[in-house]
Amino acid sequence: MEIWNTLIQEPMINTLVVLYSVLFGNFGVAIAVFTMLVRLVMLPLTLRQLRSSKAMSDLQPKIKELQKKYAKSKDKLSQEMMKAYKEAGVNPLGCLGPMVIQLPIWIALYQSVVGVLATTPEQLLNLSQRLYSWPIVYQAIPLKEDFLWLNLANPDPYYVLPVLVGATMWVQQKMVSGPGMDPRQQQMNSMMLWMMPVMFAFFTLQFPSGLAIYWVVSNVVGIVVQYFVTGWGHLLPRAPVAVPSKTETPAGGSRKRLT
């Protein structure tokens, strides 16, 4: 736990406070800039994950064909699937690695925003042990909580942020959601497409709005990165495609590629 605090949590907290001081004491802007910086640092991982996901998605029609063809022989099916993955240069678990690394970073980012807001005496006392001995840091606490119409320590009274959190999350998920291999998976996909944004929007109703800003900015950055990797993906209605050839993009929308 102490390693976590020293290596991840404290650098994040102190960077956030420095940004607050540099950005004219505006914590809302500091959260937004900080979130973008963290996403930027994680960009290589994010790109790797997205490309891996996209490659998997592109392979789905072929996998589907194989499932039909070898419906009666599971061993043969798995052999052929592995062969298909190998030919396409795809590791089925390739997107999990970056995901596993990103998860603790996101949790730390979340904890940092909560910790720095420090609205109660015990939170301030805990924060005092996490700050570096830099005047720009320890003199800046407690932070001003006002930003636009918000008190960053309280939920948004006008429900704008919960809507934004839900909407941006939905867009991001919709962009990556591909056709499922079977009806059951498809059903699960469409359930998750709505469930997660609704859940996060619901939690945002109770979160300090500073956290909601983090979520919105993080989602928007995710959408932008996603766009440059896969285009709008499945967000836009797909034009009917006869038979996807090797040179065509199977997903609808424009496609750009980052190298």
Partner: peptide, 14 residues
């Protein structure tokens, strides 16, 4: 739906 794979544990984690 890999985004959900991240979002759900993240929610629980936080």
């Amino acid at each position: 739906m890999r985004y959900s794979l991240v979002a759900f544990p993240l929610l629980i984690g936080i």
